[in-house]
């Protein structure tokens, strides 16, 4: 699917600010599932933008020294998504848990198995894991699908109910949050179960699914079928989205989206992967001046016919 993303972020400061430094993590990655055909960032007032390849993906950086009262960041990307059938490597029926007991796996993915800033390993999440386990087959993929579904059912999507520093324990108690919270919660459960799991930032295409089906997904074993109807009510299209990627025993990372109860497919555009939101926040900045600022952000993802 050929998708164009336009992500604008506007900061307005109460007073003029100076020495504004910003790191952007917005560029879709290129891998076997998607190709980022074009990406451009423009900043107003104008600034020179630098790109750095970091472990989580490409980071863009710029600074503005002269005084300014507003800052507009516009990122535009053209991405061709063509994931293989996300379910192809999933073994739902066989107990494959020995994969996760290998020492090499534990060493290699230590980073995605331990607690991180926004993902404490709460003992309470054990209950969630057990519940999901009861509702799934013996395979890890089956468990993760059940977990995705369970979180989607139990948790209420409530914009504005949390902020970036709301502790996970509070999210768990109130059973509501936004996509970051859904993702952080699922990460906590997976890591507690020793399944390497990482936070994935990206975009989601929520527009009408065309009648033609993606060739890679003829027979999805999704119980309620992951179909066009469901996509129409997708959450997360008007901002940057977040979901979870887990390492499956076939050695591949598969995305699970507890906010939408979906397995990541061609509607998903991957940007960066990290331990949690802190690693991949789309904008991270620091400036000199009044602390009062207002941020507005808008994301548009649309389907394109041709490059």
């Amino acid at each position: 699917m050929l998708l164009r993303v336009i992500h604008t972020t506007r900061y307005t400061y109460r007073e003029q600010v100076t020495e504004n430094h910003n790191e952007l993590r917005m560029m879709p990655q290129t891998d076997q599932d998607q190709i980022c055909l074009d990406f451009r960032i423009s900043v107003t007032p104008p600034a020179r933008v630098f790109a750095f390849d970091l472990p989580e993906g490409t980071m863009h950086y710029f600074n503005l020294r002269p005084p300014h009262a507003s800052l507009l960041i516009r990122a535009e990307a053209l991405v061709d998504t063509h994931p293989a059938n996300p379910f192809a490597g999933m073994n739902l029926a066989e107990d494959d848990s020995t994969f996760y007991q290998q020492e090499d796996i534990r060493i290699e993915w230590r980073r995605y198995l331990t607690a991180s800033r926004y993902v404490p390993l709460l003992p309470e999440t054990q209950r969630i894991a057990e519940m999901a386990r009861r509702q799934s087959g013996p395979g890890t993929a089956s468990f993760l699908i059940a977990l995705t579904r369970l979180l989607h059912r139990v948790m209420t999507y409530a914009p504005g109910s949390t902020h970036v520093n709301t502790p996970l324990r509070e999210v768990l108690e109130n059973k509501q949050g936004v996509c970051q919270d859904f993702a952080h919660l699922m990460l906590a459960v997976c890591r507690l179960c020793a399944i390497p799991a990482r936070y994935r930032s990206g975009y989601i295409y929520t527009g009408n699914l065309e009648q033609e089906q993606s060739p890679a997904s003829p027979n999805w074993p999704w119980p309620e079928s992951q179909d066009s109807e469901q996509h129409e009510q997708l959450i997360g299209g008007d901002a940057m989205h977040a979901w979870v990627e887990c390492l499956l025993p076939d050695g591949k990372w598969q995305g699970f989206d507890p906010t939408n109860n979906l397995v990541a497919d061609s509607h998903y555009i991957k940007v960066q992967a990290g331990r949690d939101y802190a690693d991949v926040a789309p904008v991270r900045g620091i400036y000199r001046g009044s602390a009062e600022q207002n941020m507005e952000t808008a994301v548009e993802v649309r389907k394109e016919q041709t490059v």
């Binding site: 020495e19 430094h21 790191e23 630098f50 750095f52 950086y61 600074n63 991270r284 900045g285 620091i286």
Partner: peptide, 17 residues
């Protein structure tokens, strides 16, 4: 402070980049 400790006044924003 952009990289490590946003609360630190000692550092130089952008130095790491």
């Amino acid at each position: 402070p952009l990289m490590f400790r946003p609360d630190s006044l000692l550092g130089v924003p952008g130095l790491v980049n």
